[in-house]
Amino acid sequence: MPNPARSDDFPITRHSVLAAMRSDDPAQRSRATETISAAYWKPIYKYVRLKWNLPSEDAQDFTQEFLLRLIENEFLQSFDPAKARLRTFMRTCADRLFLNQVRDAQRQKRNGGAAIPLDFDEAEQEFAKRSKTMSPEQYFEKECVRHLLALAVERLRTKCDSSGKAVHFQVFHDYDLDPESGTRSSYGTLARKYELSATDVTNYLAWARRKFRACVLQQLREMSASDEEFRREAKAILGIDPK
């Protein structure tokens, strides 16, 4: 499975994934593909499960096929950042691919023995938790954001582990990630748990949130096709407008 944490030393930043995927440098292209696959495989899988009502196994095949075509640069050749967001474009490509496959019912599966390792069981469990009231398009958008944040959490975890700040991550994890049902640990509880002072808990949490925000932006930049799209997406996702 593509490793999001690897992208920490990803050399392309400003113009990110699109330019890299069109690059003449195979190493650059390969890393860009890895990044974009990691960013989009899960939302695509869940989207086709919902939109086209594909059974899990077919959706897995479809996702593999989609990623292979992405790797072969079949889709992104025609992408124009001025016309659409990369995220919307990917969803449209998935729709188009599916319709083509339906039309070509006799198609051969190309990915028989060379499947990309993806954790479809995990994706399937997450898919089961979806809200039933959303349209497939809304669901895709929401899953893209959820996946982006999940990748950023992994990136933060890697960063913390490699810099001897595992406790920082644990504090962040316990306070910001764990409580789903309003049972959030207090600073005092965390201080006792990790043998820190309450002030340390405050500082650790502030540090981790700051780094997490940076990880999200870094991840987002790598998933965006242009600086403009990055800014638009950052505005929409981190975004400031409470409406």
């Binding site: 938790k129 999940a150 910001d176 409580p179 789903e180």
Partner: peptide
């Protein structure tokens, strides 16, 4: 990879909106 529920996603997004005024 950790599953982030809707509540967690909303909380993370809200946290990121608040400027870090520490210091």
């Amino acid at each position: 990879m950790k599953w982030l529920g809707d509540g967690t996603v909303d909380r993370l997004r809200a946290n990121m909106q608040v400027p870090d005024l520490s210091g």
